[in-house]
Design a protein around this nucleic acid. Structure first.
Lengths: 203, 203
DNA sequence: ACGCTACTGGCACTCGCTGCCATTTGGCAA
DNA sequence: TTGCCAAATGGCAGCGAGTGCCAGTAGCGT
């Protein structure tokens, strides 16, 4: 890794750290890009050479997540079914994010809930991930899944998880309890993969 | 309906018509709010008294859609199950939008596909609708559905439909054929409500 | 030590959007 | 009809995000 690359990585991290700090202290809307750049000791113009927009800074590892999910699909067991592959991919991604204790991850959840423009960005990334995962899933099971069916399956899966998380995160008590969250996610995936009646025969 | 209200409605429609026209002719990004306002013969400042943002103009009936879906839930049959209610709500909403032949609806689909900011807005509205529908569904079936399960169910349902539509709309041929679209939607709802294995035993 | 390339940061600019305010216009009652 | 109030309008000044341009700088390979 060359000196230039290291410098770039350091500047990038400095921008993220400065932004997280300022967002926590003064709020997202009350923090300008110029403030972030100044705190990271770079020019305002330089900020946009590292991130395409102010919100993008909150999702610095988005690509890695998708890559991890795609890889989880690629390395499937010989007799693993699509549903099982999706579950494993979900576990892989959520395990990677054991940085949930990190300031950035916690801040991000709050901002997704509270700031419309951040939520919009998160939803876009989710959609991109869906599309990519569905594409690879369809390619992996060519004679079981046509592209549209794969997209519907992945959409149901991620939609269920996202929907459950959304209402869960509105309740600070439930969101703070890992066991409750885990149970809700398990329930959501069951609903998506086996249907509601099968997942919860009566309640 | 007072004269003032009629005038307001006329101005609102003039703004929409002018915007659709300009968007079609010159593209979304190359059309400024000032251009739209000028074409509708109102001040730029007035535009924002009718729509909170440039994109919002593309979704003028968003509230009505949600209201229709909620009403479809409220007027459920005595022994209708949640899944059936959701299916009926979907049919109601998509039936209302037989204005699919309208210039606005067609333009909107294109812009959702092509312009990130428009797609973001659409996703936000979808999420709002999900939340509201899940809330009412949980309230309608209090002892069968807790809020989180309802959110997961609705998320899976809408996620499947959205996912299927997304890949479908990428293919102009398929998107242009109503029968194909209808079949894909039916398949998507089946996947979401009864699970993939049940909906497509083998392919 | 050399030139090449990538990186930087400042300036000017566009555009979406808001606060403010003076003016106009429709609604309503005396 | 007259007169008052509230709603609507539009213009202006301003903010912040994001971009094109360009001159200066710093790392990299020869």
């Amino acid at each position: 890794m060359s000196l230039r690359d290291r410098k770039r990585a350091r500047t990038r991290q400095a921008l993220i750290d400065a932004a997280v700090d300022l967002f926590e202290r003064h709020g997202y809307d009350r923090t300008g890009v110029a403030d972030i750049a100044a705190a990271a000791e770079v020019g305002t113009r330089t900020f946009f050479r590292y991130f395409p927009s102010k919100e993008a800074l909150l999702f610095p590892e988005a690509d890695d997540r998708i890559r991890a999910a795609v890889e989880a699909i690629a390395t499937r067991g010989p007799d693993e079914r699509p549903a099982e592959v999706l579950l494993r991919a979900l576990r892989t991604v959520t395990a990677d994010s054991e940085d949930m204790g990190s300031r950035l991850a916690a801040l991000r959840l709050r901002l997704i809930r509270d700031v419309p423009v951040v939520r919009g960005r998160a939803l876009q990334l989710q959609l991109d991930a869906q599309r990519e995962i569905a594409r690879h899933l369809a390619a992996t099971y060519p004679e079981q899944l046509d592209p549209v069916t794969a997209a519907a399956l992945v959409g149901a899966f991620i939609g269920a998880v996202a929907g459950a998380l959304q209402v869960l995160l509105d309740d600070p008590d439930q969101a703070a309890d890992p066991a409750t969250v885990q149970a809700a996610l398990r329930r959501a995936t069951e609903i998506a993969l086996t249907g509601w009646t099968a997942a919860a025969p009566t309640g």
